[in-house]
Design a protein around this nucleic acid. Structure first.
Lengths: 231, 231
DNA sequence: TTCGGAATTTGACATTGGTCAACGCGGCTG
DNA sequence: CAGCCGCGTTGACCAATGTCAAATTCCGAA
């Protein structure tokens, strides 16, 4: 029996749709790995040596300039695929934001396996196309939205993304949630400074649009107002 | 005999690698179409009805806010694939920047054909992964670079991209080229205003880093300086 | 419970890039 | 050839956001 049998993302990750024998083979080339919050899994510009499925936790994908500016270019949630198959180098670093569990494969093994399993490649293609859509809409945010629109959009996206990561079905967007990001990380995601992020959070709180019970907790009080601000 | 036989991107587009019979079938579901500069091919948020290969010309992918701000989220060159297969709506508009020729397919036909041809899906996957890499590095530009870094990065990218679109092999980056963008479009690509773009161009000219013989022509005089500015 | 350090917030000020308005250039048309 | 129109450039000014520094809060460890 493979560990895939009890995998919580078995029906959502790219391995869904594989039959028992295929899963067995895939299981034999992959292994579970725990990553603690803050620990890197993949380095930017390194040889692309491994790829992975996220089982549990949240990870950030980042690119950096030589002088240390950082931009978060993606966020991976459970069932997401990370890493760069079919390529020599990764264009982004991957670092765990929370303690996480992933199912890792050597890139070579994965590439070979994928080429032999069109159904898996198809799942990966659908996922990559969806990620490209999301990334493009984030470009709109980075290039054309102001600070308050960025923050509002961010909070709404968090409320959506963090809602269905649990097991409960279609609960809709979360009203209250715990951010997997520090203020600095929010800044790196939105292309702002930490001070601007902080000021915008304070403003939303003062305007009665959100509650901020603690540094990481957010409660959306007036969702409609947020939608307005998001533009 | 299919029109694919004489297609100039036959060996670079996702249809490369298909055998004669397969190309024949693909040819039977696609058709050539000319698009004149400024003409739209796909509308944002519309049902995703068609996908295409670019044969000749340059097209922009854009998203817009309700109040008319626009962000260019991608640029398609010959042999690139455009449109959103396996999805209900397109997340971006596609508009020709120059007169262009494309090979269009109905999305349904294409989806069906692709599902039956893993080799084609694989090519599409590789292309999508590469596009995602490029898009992510553009996020770095939008979120963390200042105006002069943006312009320098843009000119260098143009110099690379426009170099090998011709037939000559590996000529390296172009020293002189004709921009397929108006100043406004450069602004929409870089997340700036037209005035800022104009001022930065003027500055590069005054500093002797580029020559601007006409509105669309650029000659890179001091590539090293541009590389420095790009950061 | 207290302490210490990191994260966050706040304030004062500087700077970048945006806004608005006028001007200029170049190409097209009559 | 003259006039017009769209695109691009330039200038003056302004607002949003970044920078730097200090104060405050939070949270975990002793």
């Amino acid at each position: 029996m493979s560990s895939c049998d009890t995998c919580v993302v078995r029906n959502r990750a790219i391995c869904s749709g594989l039959d028992d024998r295929e899963i067995g083979t895939l299981n034999s080339i992959g292994r579970r790995r725990n990553v603690t919050a803050g620990e890197p899994l993949i380095w930017e510009d390194d040889d692309s040596l491994l790829v992975a499925n996220v089982i549990e936790g949240v990870l950030k994908l980042t690119t950096s300039t030589e002088d240390g500016r950082e931009q978060i270019v993606g966020v991976a949630y459970p069932s997401d695929f990370i890493g760069r198959p079919f390529g020599q180098t990764s264009s982004a670093s991957v670092v765990a934001l929370t303690d996480a569990r992933v199912c890792v494969f050597s890139r070579n093994d994965f590439d070979r396996y994928a080429r032999e399993h069109p159904e898996l490649e198809h799942k990966l293609l659908e996922r990559t196309l969806a990620e490209l859509d999301r990334t493009r809409s984030w470009m709109m945010l980075l290039g054309r939205k102001n600070a308050s629109e960025k923050i509002a959009t961010f909070l709404l996206e968090m409320s959506d993304r963090l809602a269905d990561s649990g097991c409960t079905a279609a609960t809709g967007p979360a009203k209250r949630f715990s951010l997997p990001f520090s203020r600095q990380q929010v800044a790196d995601l939105l292309g702002l400074t930490i001070e601007t992020v902080s000021r915008q959070f304070t403003k939303l709180k003062n305007d009665g649009i959100v509650e901020l019970p603690s540094r990481r907790e957010v409660e959306i009080v007036d969702r409609k107002a947020l939608l307005n601000l998001a533009g």
